[in-house]
Amino acid sequence: MKEDIETIFENDPAARSWFEVAFTYSGLHALWAHRVGHWLYRRGWFTSARMVSQFSRFMTGIEIHPGAVIGRRFFIDHGMGVIIGETCEIGNDVVLYQGVTLGGTGKEKGKRHPTIGNNVVISSGAKVLGSFTVGDNSRIGSNAVVLKEVPPNSTVVGIPGMIVKRDGVRIGKLDHNNLPDPVIDMFRQMQQQIDELKQTVQDLQSKNGGVHEHGAKNL
């Protein structure tokens, strides 16, 4: 419990005191409740485990299935709307922001939810769906929809998620104000192609107009 609180101080500059963190941080409460539910789940008391999970969801707005496996120094910032599925596995030093879903696609059997590596940051509203792995030190941008494996040391943004950075070295905490946008890049490329086509059409019109004018003079 001490490590959980210290993790919040390391990740949240708004944290002021141990008392405030222990009594007002919903992500911390959801994590502690999950530990109780997971203990019951591992011993086969599935209904009791789900009751703990649902009570925690009611109190915190965070839904963590008691079957999920969560590593050390896990931090949920703000947390409202976070959903973590039954077969999800989360490594150490992972940070989730509000509205994150670690879910399935509804097609798999058995392992249905993602495996999140160590030191991963998943930003607000991101959806990671499927039974694949998000590699260590990776970061997922706000509102990204990730549907396939993410290599270590990668940055993923967009819908569907696209890898926009992978340099083979450890990536620091997510900078929300400095993320590339593949959708905007695509629109820029489309605009460039449209401008080139317009110029081609204008050149053809000018050429054809000159031919018609020359023919009229000869008549």
Rank of each mutant, 00 (worst) to 15 (best):
G71N: 06
I62Y: 02
T47Y: 03
L40P: 02
I70S: 07
T47V: 11
G79I: 05
L40T: 01
V52N: 02
T47I: 09
S53T: 07
R42V: 11
G79C: 06
T47M: 05
S48C: 08
I76V: 15
G44R: 11
G67M: 01
M80G: 01
M80Y: 11
V69T: 14
I90G: 14
H78S: 08
R73E: 04
I83H: 05
G79T: 04
A68E: 09
I83R: 00
G71P: 04
V52S: 01
F58G: 12
W45I: 03
R50H: 11
E63Q: 14
G85P: 10
E86R: 09
M59F: 10
M51D: 07
I70V: 15
G67N: 02
P66M: 01
F74Y: 08
L40K: 00
A49M: 06
Q54V: 07
E63P: 12
N92S: 12
Q54L: 15
I90K: 12
I70N: 10
C88Y: 11
C88K: 09
L40D: 02
G61H: 05
S53Q: 09
I76Q: 10
Q54S: 10
R43E: 04
R72V: 08
G81V: 12
A49R: 02
Y41C: 02
H78P: 09
C88V: 15
H78M: 09
S56G: 09
